[in-house]
């Protein structure tokens, strides 16, 4: 019996839950447009808008969009190639 080359999205619950429980403002993000990494706290966020629009401080392209409905939210990170977080040291078993 051959194992599938992927698992379903349920496995993301743990990792994503851990990541987004952290303070995003302490993370580093890399712009997908110009490639410049920098602190999320340094993004230019346009908040007088139908959603939050975070732009790269170097090239002004959109890195993150967050739209909040009363019962739902949309997070678009297509303008970000990575988010880097400070993490506690891994414990060896």
């Amino acid at each position: 019996m051959t194992a599938l080359p992927y698992v379903d999205g349920n496995m993301l619950d743990g990792p994503l839950g851990e990541v987004f429980a952290l303070d995003l403002s302490s993370a580093t993000a890399r712009c997908a447009h110009c490639g410049t990494p920098g602190p999320v706290a340094g993004l230019r966020v346009y908040s007088h808008a139908p959603g939050l629009v975070g732009r790269c401080p170097t090239c002004i392209e959109v890195m993150v969009r967050l739209v909040r409905a009363p019962d739902r939210a949309w997070l678009d990170l297509r303008g970000t190639t990575f988010l880097q977080f400070p993490m506690p040291p891994e414990r060896t078993p």
Binding site: P50, G51, R65, V67, A69, R72, A73, W74, D76
Partner: peptide, 19 residues
């Protein structure tokens, strides 16, 4: 721009098509 981030594709205010 907004239609790819959760907002309604058409957006009729009288039918309150926000999201």
């Amino acid at each position: 721009f907004w239609e790819t981030a959760g907002y309604h594709d058409y957006g009729d205010p009288w039918r309150e098509q926000r999201y």
